[in-house]
Simulated assay, not measured.
Amino acid sequence: MQWRNTSARYGLVSVLLHWLVALVVFGLFALGYWMVGLSYYDPWRQSAPDLHKSIGILLFAVMLLRVLWRLLNPAPAALASHGQLTRLASKLGHGVLYLGLFGVMISGYLISTADGRGIEVFGLFSVPATLTGIPQQEDIAGAIHEYLAWGLVIFAGLHGLAALKHHFIDRDSTLLRMFGR
Rank of each mutant, 00 (worst) to 15 (best):
V36T: 15
S39T: 09
V36C: 05
L28V: 07
D42P: 06
L20V: 14
G37Y: 13
L16P: 07
Y40F: 12
L12H: 06
Y33Q: 10
R45V: 15
S14Y: 01
G32V: 04
Q46G: 10
H18S: 06
R9L: 04
P49R: 03
F26W: 15
D50K: 06
W34S: 13
F26E: 09
L16W: 09
L20E: 09
W34K: 12
Y33N: 12
G32L: 12
K53R: 14
L16I: 07
S47R: 13
Y40M: 12
R9C: 02
A22N: 02
V24M: 14
V24I: 15
D50M: 11
Y10L: 03
S47F: 07
L31E: 09
Y40N: 13
L31F: 07
L16S: 08
G32I: 08
V15P: 01
A48S: 05
F29Q: 06
Y40T: 10
P49F: 01
A22M: 08
Y33G: 06
F29M: 10
Y41M: 13
L38F: 09
W19G: 08
L20M: 11
D50I: 11
S14F: 01
G37F: 13
H52L: 00
D50N: 13
G32W: 12
L51I: 11
Y10G: 05
F29P: 05
G37R: 05
S47I: 15
V24F: 14
P43I: 02
H52F: 02
L28T: 01
R45G: 09
W19D: 05
D42T: 01
A48P: 06
V15Q: 05
F29D: 04
Y40H: 11
V21I: 14
L38S: 14
G32M: 12
